[in-house]
Amino acid sequence: MGMQSQSFVRVRNLSIDIPVTNGILHAVRDVSFEIPKGKTLCVVGESGSGKSMLALGLIGLLPHRATCVSTELSIGGVEMRGLSGAELSQLRGRRIAMIFQEPMTSLNPCYTIGDQMTEMAVRHMKMRLSEARDCARQWLEKVGIPASSERLRQYPHQLSGGLRQRVMIAMMLMCEPELIIADEPTTALDVTIQAQVLHVLASLQRELGLTMLFITHDLGVVSRIADQIAVMYAGSFVELGTAQAVLDTPTHPYTQGLLACIPGFTSKQEKGALGTIPGAVPSLVGNISGCAFFNRCPEAVPACAEGEGPIARRVGQQWVRCLMPSLSDANVETPV
């Protein structure tokens, strides 16, 4: 329990449903996790696994028709459930920041970088405009953008994708938040730029002691920054544990499959055989009977297709949601 009290983010049984034309889309299904203060949790999954919805759900930016239920959702000791819109908007940008995937479209084309940065500080830090400009300039330099005074007068379309994402990081960190949620922040960038932006983000995170929820489908990125890893499939976490445990001893067949897709990543992998996972993510509309990974799983047994699907069990260092016929019951314990 001592460990839990230090957790900055605590989420229990979070589910997100979105009504769509042909039913209800269960984007996130019964997800629980904690992030200790100053640590990074990486959520990994294919596109369509519900990871972006999870991020939006945490800061209350889901589409209006979506419903988000959980038994606990606290960030920095504040229970987020039941907060009014105004209370939420006081937290957003101030204590919780979010960085999005699309740097090209995530900044308002009609306002200068300066306008968009200063309005944050004016709103949350109650700064005067001149103070806010100084602050914005300092932050631009912290993320490695020289000639900051000039940049403040420019419009987003005058900047490259990498620069825009740095501006985004600077803007979101300006009010010194405690938690940063990054939704695939480097996916849309060139590979070299990706590395630079990731470096900026990771070093600032260490320097400021930020807690981070990092969403990606790129396991290469995960291995560089994660303290903990959650593997998401069809709206649920199928495996959750420390970075080392998940990367060294992947237990869920899906995690194993993902790692096998990366050249030279795991020791288990036979030399020269680069794996793929056959099949596609199942539709998230309606209920899934049995395990969602059943139709693609190399180790599936008939029992996997039945019932509500497997519950999360502790296997060694990590939580795994799998019936796992290959594992003996001795080292399996069920959650409290």
Partner: peptide, 11 residues
């Protein structure tokens, strides 16, 4: 998000 909302075969 667009990918999630499209579900082949069930429409």
């Amino acid at each position: 998000m667009a990918e999630i909302l499209q579900s082949p075969g069930e429409n």
